[in-house]
Design a protein around this nucleic acid. Sequence first.
DNA 1: ATCAGCATGTAAGGCGTTACATGATTCA
DNA 2: TGAATCATGTAACGCCTTACATGCTGAT
Lengths: 179, 179
Amino acid sequence: MAKDRKIDLVILGLLSHEDLTGYDIKKRIDGGISFFWKGSFGSIYPSLSAMERSGLVQRLKEDNESGREKIRYHITKKGKDQLRTWLKDEKADNDLKYETLLKLYFGGAEERDITLRNIDIFEEKIRRDIEVLKMYKSSLEKYLDNEDHLYYYLTVTFGIDTYEAYLKWCAKARKLLKR
Amino acid sequence: MAKDRKIDLVILGLLSHEDLTGYDIKKRIDGGISFFWKGSFGSIYPSLSAMERSGLVQRLKEDNESGREKIRYHITKKGKDQLRTWLKDEKADNDLKYETLLKLYFGGAEERDITLRNIDIFEEKIRRDIEVLKMYKSSLEKYLDNEDHLYYYLTVTFGIDTYEAYLKWCAKARKLLKR
DNA sequence: ATCAGCATGTAAGGCGTTACATGATTCA
DNA sequence: TGAATCATGTAACGCCTTACATGCTGAT
């Protein structure tokens, strides 16, 4: 039952780049990292409150121009230390749940057409997603001398490379199933 | 809050191949499908009880040779229908959580050596896992005329192909980071 | 005026893990 | 005789999602 709220680390990581509101954090997660991590408001806001209580992040007093409620957070020294401790920790679980592969594995319970259709759907989704990643890639390529951008770039190329492997596999699988 | 216990489908899928005990099911999950799905006793046994109550699976009366407690389950007609309905359902969420990529993305908070080390660890794990997959592959190749084996084979090649893409990416990433 | 997007948060509940509890059997 | 494996199950608890609740702001 070790405390293992990965969302905390995601938030600390994002805050190590810039000060952000909970809403901003959600947008950052939905943007560049959503293909390998997800997060909802229902986990972000409680995490921010908890981390504020334990001194990992700080509320910034906004020059409340409007009166609109908006809480921007800043990472503290303690928060940065926690982030670095996690980065240095050698264990990392990559927890993959491919429902598509599950359906493929149990495909024998239905007609082949069903499996072929499921592969098509998977492929279509990947084709759409890879386009987005390629756009990210080309905009990141221009600033590889920026340290952070280099890291973003590497995650994006990871995505593109694996997605391309998926697409090649789809073609092979289709061929095998159509025989 | 839609009921969405995927473990139920995993179990129904496995039972569509053969009658199994809860313990057997755990072994099957840890074997061929663990690289894309996981499951623990704490979810398997409650799922079996629930599915028995709703008539998706049936206990088999063992010719209790020994007296040793052992409950083998059989999938019912209703269970098979549920499995097929799921296979035909076009939505499939492939939920990937790569903690390694998260650490990579936030790598800027530490020295490059840390990131390089994390890539090494990732690569070592993949190299080990790909060997296992290749063994599965070569034993499955002999029986591709068997419908079920064809499906197992396809999931295994999916794993091998993507893992090979990971390995290529590791080399590229290392090169970029060492400049 | 209306609607999309900005912005924060809570409540209920589902899913799943880890740890625990228990005991039989097989094999060295 | 002791360890590994077979075998079933429960309890506690953690994490997260979905849905709900609320209200402001900016653009059309």
